[in-house]
Nucleic acid binder design. Sequence first.
DNA 1: ATAATTCCTAGTAAATTACTAGGGTATTCA
DNA 2: TGAATACCCTAGTAATTTACTAGGAATTAT
Lengths: 149, 149
Amino acid sequence: MKLSTKGRYGLKAMLDLAVHSVDGQVSLNSIAERQGLSENYLEQLFASLKKAKLIKSVRGPQGGYMLADSPENISVGDILRALEGSLAPTDCVSEDQGAGSCSNSGRCVTRSVWERIRDGINNVIDNITLQELIDDYLRNNNSRIIDNT
Amino acid sequence: MKLSTKGRYGLKAMLDLAVHSVDGQVSLNSIAERQGLSENYLEQLFASLKKAKLIKSVRGPQGGYMLADSPENISVGDILRALEGSLAPTDCVSEDQGAGSCSNSGRCVTRSVWERIRDGINNVIDNITLQELIDDYLRNNNSRIIDNT
DNA sequence: ATAATTCCTAGTAAATTACTAGGGTATTCA
DNA sequence: TGAATACCCTAGTAATTTACTAGGAATTAT
């Protein structure tokens, strides 16, 4: 039940992007350098984020990425689900799966446990916006770091 | 962020055990057969559950396992943590780790996200008792199944 | 044109998962 | 007493997933 590096690196990179894209786009290279991540690997994560329409890109020299919407409108849940898929604890209650994935859903006793865990996680991550993380970061700019993992 | 078969099979087996151990112990073999699981694999899961003092065992013929406490006193959280370790989304906020595992914890912006996810999960699983699952199972005995995954 | 940048796909080493195999130990019962 | 039944323990392993690396193609500012 651990988040993979996709979710961890991706949230870290999105916060870096949000903080540094105030005037125009930001190159992946600069994000990778500041956060100590592999640029090639970040490319793959940003492909997922773009597909989910959370970021926009500009090609060519001086190109880069920027948020597709204001940070108040982007939740941690949007970001993590774009990168990790559903955070449901089992496939049978995953939002990704076709609804009828589990043939015995109506009769399964443990299913309600998995649903309640899923809803508990979603309730947390859907109620934290990127803006809140930016505020937290800027509040103590000189001593605050985004993530060190 | 998916639960492994340890957690899924283990909760399923614990509920089977709780339902069938009303008078005395229950053999692993019978649990494995009823639930369609590998007996050898279940042995390993039950070793973890025993180490966590959630079950007791009796050796020899007619031996088997039984709950170490009444089902109202055993939570889904107790069971899942015994099998999976901490359900925290990252190592840096895991209850398993030494407290000072993350050197920058006080300054890390995303740490609070991981903590809130961890607390959200724990709040769910620590507030569901095995007794509630038993009640749910018995409520509609003839149409209810424990788990089909 | 050239260089900087995003875009895209394939490959792969390491780690993890989900078991299987097989032997040992305690206890009951004929 | 000895055979059968169950728990106990460790090692090995195939399959899958993770976390990347590599390298080329497309786009565009200068």
